[in-house]
Design a protein around this nucleic acid. Structure first.
Lengths: 241, 241
DNA sequence: GATATAATACTTGTATACAAGTATACTAAA
DNA sequence: TTTAGTATACTTGTATACAAGTATTATATC
């Protein structure tokens, strides 16, 4: 354990962060990236030694990571779960679930401010692409979706988002960094998809919304189809009361 | 603060629990019941003194309660949010959202074991009613729904459930205790509703499922209608690809 | 009386110490 | 070689101590 440590989490995002927050961010990235393999057993004492901090912030970190479902705390040591293909699909299930829910709420409310805000983020995404800043782009991608979710003013849906967000952030960071090198043309497409997303919200056009959700999530995982099928089936029987 | 403390959380559910777990359970109940009013500012030191424990388990408790969205941790002190009508409605939004999702998954899988398990819980509910045990009944109600959710084997939906569960548990406990005294006839109805729920799963009958979801959640809050409407609307435009 | 400054009593975050329990490894006896 | 028992090195959970920062309050000055 004496190799010089290379940090995976952007240090500039941790300017005001406490030791505990640094630990949890870095530990999460190491798990998501596979640097710490799933199945590994984490000991509070060892981690404290490796990070050169006391057990207090480590304990805090392990509690958080276990609430995020990427580790599992047992009697002796915490077992790393990590993210397999299955877990990633599941995360996108949840994202689609909450975003479709939120969309329905938004349709009924005034969304002029939201649309303005989303366009601002969209322009910032463009700048990130121009300057090849994968980390910044990831942040804006997340910010985009969070802004939509916040607009619905639903504290428990927001709670779900907050519980999911750090893992999403890590995944997206790693994925975007890779794509910036290998598939740079992806970003124009992601950009266009988000523009479509805004249009769907602005026009309150369901068909467009479905299409854009498709495009936003299909390219990451081929998962939207099933979701919609579920909701169609449910609705078929839905002439309730 | 010298009145003799009456505990709201069933002490027999805490036999193997650590101090931290006791604190979080009791604190949660005091917030949900309104004994600690929303808007109150909680201090780690004061709480530690009141519960006669150190700050360590208190810190842990506050972290957990803030992840559950019933307090909000700020620079100085944690502000109690509690549960207003709005929050309760939102919790049921999420419950309906995840249970409808789960149902779709179950339809495609073998549910014989699940049905057997649910019937077992149903019989135990009957016993709880017979012996007027509101706490036990609450536990079984939660167990019923958790069993369904677990059957789908979806770790991130389960994560949402787990994040929601403690608050649900507290709410249901308080509500059932009250109803056992005031509206005892409610329980036969709840029992029947759960039986219907099982039937819907067993027969894989969507219409029945919608009906039972209605009955299971409408009586607590009049909230299902909107939900289904949302899904119908979404599905209308849903001939994707 | 109003305002600026200093002292005080809080706050959180981290480190450390200790107790109680659990797994592992080692030693002794069959 | 196997088995029983003990010693040791871990584990978590809790208490306590300390540092750094933030409100609040009191005091001094205008």
């Amino acid at each position: 354990m004496n190799e010089p440590m290379e940090f995976l989490y952007p240090s500039k995002w941790l300017t005001k962060a406490s030791t505990g927050e640094r630990v949890v961010s870095e530990l999460r990235m190491q798990i998501l990236s596979g640097r710490i393999e799933s199945g590994t057993i984490l000991s509070e004492n060892k981690l404290a030694a490796e990070f050169s901090v006391s057990r207090s912030p480590i304990r805090e970190a392990l509690k958080i990571l276990s609430a995020e479902n990427i580790i599992r705390q047992e009697r002796m040591g915490a077992v790393v779960i990590g993210l397999s293909e299955k877990e990633i699909e599941e995360i996108y299930d949840v994202r689609i679930l909450i975003e479709t829910f939120i969309y329905q709420r938004l349709v009924r409310s005034d969304i002029t401010d939201l649309v303005k805000e989303l366009n601002k983020i969209l322009e910032m995404m463009k700048v990130s692409i121009k300057y090849n800043d994968a980390d910044e782009f990831s942040l804006q991608d997340l910010q985009f979706h969070e802004t939509i979710i916040r607009a619905a003013n639903h504290s428990y849906i927001l709670m779900i988002w907050n519980n999911l967000k750090p893992v999403m952030e890590g995944m997206i960071l790693l994925s975007m960094r890779k794509r910036f090198k290998e598939n740079h043309q992806d970003f124009e497409r992601i950009f266009t998809n988000h523009a479509l997303y805004i249009e769907a919200i602005e026009k309150k056009d369901k068909t467009l919304m479905i299409q854009s959700l498709h495009q936003n999530f299909d390219d990451v995982q081929g998962r939207v189809e099933d979701m919609w099928k579920s909701q169609e089936i449910l609705a078929e029987g839905g002439g309730t009361k």
